[in-house]
Design a protein around this nucleic acid. Structure first.
Lengths: 350, 350
DNA sequence: CTGAAAGCGCTTACAG
DNA sequence: CTGAAAGCGCTTACAG
């Protein structure tokens, strides 16, 4: 019940040395003799002392806290990112402070002000955009920001994305090569750069082969909205023989809708392809052909950008764009000679 | 680029008042006149001042940080918990510091030491146990701990769980009433209290009707292991006509295995039931009969326990056990008169 | 290598 | 209601 009050001064007294000596023992790289180290460590151990990170932060100006703002945790892609990011940062002695940016909780700027109050050393915005006013503030405060899976007009911040245009294009080529004639698209939230780039790439790919979008719906990156869009699209007298859904999360909902409510078979009646390659995609119920966003690499680049700015004082924002492969599975009819042009999917996971 | 250096002293000078006055304006409940408030706020606004939470924490001894330790983020249940917990805590001015407790990252005690270094006001351990030595330390430091979805021998800490025994029992009754004769069980990680309680309840329920377990496998709460256990169980010459899988996460993998690799139909050949009622359960591909763990209520109780200890100085640990309903869907054969004894599932979600 | 002292940015008794 | 001062637990020049 007694509040943990063991401070460096307590240790100093116990060991019969100065408080600064104790501090030095716990500061990597400070000059202390071996005998001093032993003596202090023994005393610290006895008393159960550990340095107060908050007090240290106040002086060093480094909190070793990274603020992460996330919007959708129901899309499997994000828990995966959170897990990898947190693990990677932990290994470097940093920790993740989480902020849910939900529509209901006011706008993102308020949330970001709260983050700044904690004197975070850096911020990762996952699929979230911020106002230019707040961008100004972060910049003024010298706090590095990485936009994850979102590009922004402002080139003030680092961004890490996959090559969404190329991915969209690859999907178009795969569907055209598969002999599909009426190709539809279900979009994500139209404000998102990922959505725009995927669609632009997809349409460019279709155009190259003399095709264009047969039908278009909007799913807003949400399962319910996507299912509704699919319902509308496939209730028409003539409906697509293939559909690209802007991310896997929505694609699952679309497949459910096609099979469950519309009585269509995938891929016999309709081919469905997605984007992300989350774990669920490889489950045999979905067996989804999709473009992989290499989450491991994307997180690694995010951490690298953060560390470069925090620890090495890099000032130039980075713009990382990672290639993701087309992962061929069974949810879309394959071109006859597909193995010549596309790699077979080789994961053993469920 | 210039580090954000606006302090209360800057504001004080700008407004021509004392530094303490500035501090009071930003301290809810402190005695300040309206004119002082206006003057200080104006100056603060002009300078873009916001109090440094870390400095405040040092004095008040309250960081408004809650450490959350999670193990599995691939089980949909946990992102859901994280999201709800974070949102609820944010509304109360607290924030979540995330720690991934992975096997690879050493043991949980090390991770917890790191948490303690941040002077967190409270800790939530989600499906994770800690050593009694560390428990000692938290207790000594007066830091409230809530065990979420895990009970522990030690009654030093608050726990929040669903009634796993009752849930397991309900499932047994449902399967027996459905006319199943050879009932199997695929266990979670055997060290987990949730696993033990669910199994004990299930077996008690079977026993009451003169049944006992026909087969048993261990899935360790992991999809791959569960699939393997199912493969073994259903490769025998005589296999179960129903199986309770200790959580939904594993149940999906089992269903995939049964359908995909073993060529069995669910529920025609085998009934499958799970535990948790995560979002995926309601998707028509799975349509899983399961026991709901009311995540909203469980999080609310967790937050309540935390706040009671942090803000009201409550010292007695709470042991909250929440009832969860059996959710009847299509993955298990239903008793003829089931609507008389069980409620139909009424969710409209995908 | 070691200690005494200043200071990080706040809150909070203590006087007035 | 307001200000001057002490102090939270550290790190880091500055001397020695």
């Amino acid at each position: 019940m007694a509040r943990d009050n063991v401070t460096s001064l307590d240790v100093a007294r116990h060991a019969g040395v100065s408080q600064s000596a104790v501090s030095r023992v716990f500061t990597p790289g400070a000059s202390v003799s071996q005998s001093m180290t032993d003596r202090v460590l023994a005393a610290a151990d006895e008393l159960g002392y550990r340095p107060n990170v908050l007090a240290r932060s106040m002086i060093t100006g480094k909190s070793r806290l990274i603020g992460l703002v996330v919007a959708y945790l129901d899309n499997q892609f994000y828990p995966e990112i959170l897990e990898k990011l947190s693990t990677s940062l932990q290994q470097r002695g940093y920790h993740v402070l989480v902020f849910m940016a939900q529509q209901t909780a006011g706008n993102i700027d308020d949330v970001l002000e709260e983050i700044l109050d904690y004197q975070v050393d850096g911020i990762v915005l996952a699929s979230v955009a911020m106002s230019s006013m707040l961008a100004e503030r972060c910049d003024a405060a010298g706090i590095p920001v990485v936009l994850f899976n979102r590009a922004q007009q402002e080139d003030r911040f680092s961004t890490v994305t996959s090559d969404n245009f190329a991915g969209g294009k690859a999907l178009a080529e795969f569907l055209v090569a598969g002999g599909h004639r009426r190709i539809g698209y279900i979009a994500g939230w139209e404000g998102a750069s990922t959505q725009r780039d995927r669609e632009a790439g997809f349409c460019a790919g279709l155009a190259e082969h003399g095709h264009k979008l047969f039908a278009r719906g909007v799913g807003d990156f949400r399962t319910e909205t996507a299912a509704k869009a699919a319902r509308a699209m496939f209730s028409a007298s003539e409906f697509p023989d293939a559909v690209f859904v802007a991310n896997d999360h929505m694609a699952f909902a679309v497949i459910e809708e096609l099979r469950g409510n519309l009585g269509l078979r995938v891929p016999e009646d309709v081919s469905v392809v997605g984007y992300d390659d989350v774990q669920l995609s490889r489950w045999s119920s979905f067996d989804l052909t999709t473009v992989r966003q290499p989450s491991g690499e994307m997180v690694a680049e995010t951490v690298a950008a953060l560390m470069a700015q925090i620890e090495d004082g890099e000032t130039e924002p980075r713009r990382v764009k990672i290639d993701g492969p087309l992962v061929v599975r069974g949810s879309a009819r394959r071109p006859a000679d597909w193995k010549a042009n596309w790699k077979e999917c080789d994961d053993e996971r469920l």
